[in-house]
């Protein structure tokens, strides 16, 4: 009995990051990387992967040391832990995927100041046991990666007529170049949020009509 309760708790913590509390689409956290590097789908996924690594390991460490870290200096400690993992991921990318590292540029280092990561440490990892913290971190960063992939795919398809570098349309397609330039980032996230708002509003309306 206890096991099923626990299992469902883990599942809930994992799933919430994917959609219901999606860091980009719902909480609108970590927008800087979400908009800056998503000019192609592959860059979005790479950024998501780097964030997944940093968030998971930071949560693991913060949660294991949560009883040793004094409350007064917890934020500083989180930042140092996060910065360490970001440095590791920066060097790993530089060594094994130099092309991607060049594309992402300084934004790999800027994962340190992604408010999503610090937010999860403060709101979750510092208060919960290790396994739960890791599950939460995995869910959140997968949700983040998913959002980045969506944005990157939309911008690449509209702005370049391709997905993962493979051309989708014939030669008649006129690429909408502004979408892979900075304004496209703001616009595509803006219109995506607009679409979600519309969906939510429609659902609420339906709920009222059905008498809930």
């Amino acid at each position: 009995m206890k096991n099923t309760v626990e299992a469902s708790r883990y599942r809930a913590e994992f799933v919430k990051g994917l959609w219901k509390e999606n860091p980009v689409f719902v909480a609108v956290l970590g927008m800087c990387p979400a908009l800056a590097v998503t000019n192609t789908a592959i860059n979005g996924i790479a950024m998501g992967g780097a964030t997944l690594f940093v968030l998971t390991f930071s949560s693991l460490l913060v949660s294991s040391f949560r009883k040793l870290i004094p409350k007064e200096v917890r934020i500083t400690t989180f930042v140092i832990i996060i910065a360490t993992f970001v440095t590791i991921v920066d060097f790993l990318l530089q060594a094994f995927m130099p092309a991607i590292h060049k594309e992402l540029g300084a934004f790999v280092a800027l994962i340190v100041v992604n408010c999503l990561i610090l937010g999860r440490q403060e709101a979750f990892a510092f208060k919960n046991p290790v396994r739960l913290a890791v599950v939460d971190a995995l869910g959140m960063s997968l949700g983040f990666s998913f959002a980045l992939f969506c944005l990157g795919a939309i911008r690449e398809i509209l702005g370049n007529g391709s997905l993962f570098g493979i051309t989708l349309f014939g030669p008649d397609f006129e690429p909408w170049i502004v979408m892979i330039l900075p304004p496209g980032g703001f616009l595509s996230l803006g219109f995506l949020l607009l679409f979600f708002n519309w969906l939510k509003q429609r659902q609420e309306k339906k709920g009222v009509e059905n008498g809930y």
Binding site: V28, F191, N197
Partner: peptide, 13 residues
């Protein structure tokens, strides 16, 4: 439906 973050993002764009 457009109020809030969506509107701000589109203005920023």
């Amino acid at each position: 439906v457009i109020e809030g973050t969506a509107l701000n993002l589109i203005i920023a764009g």
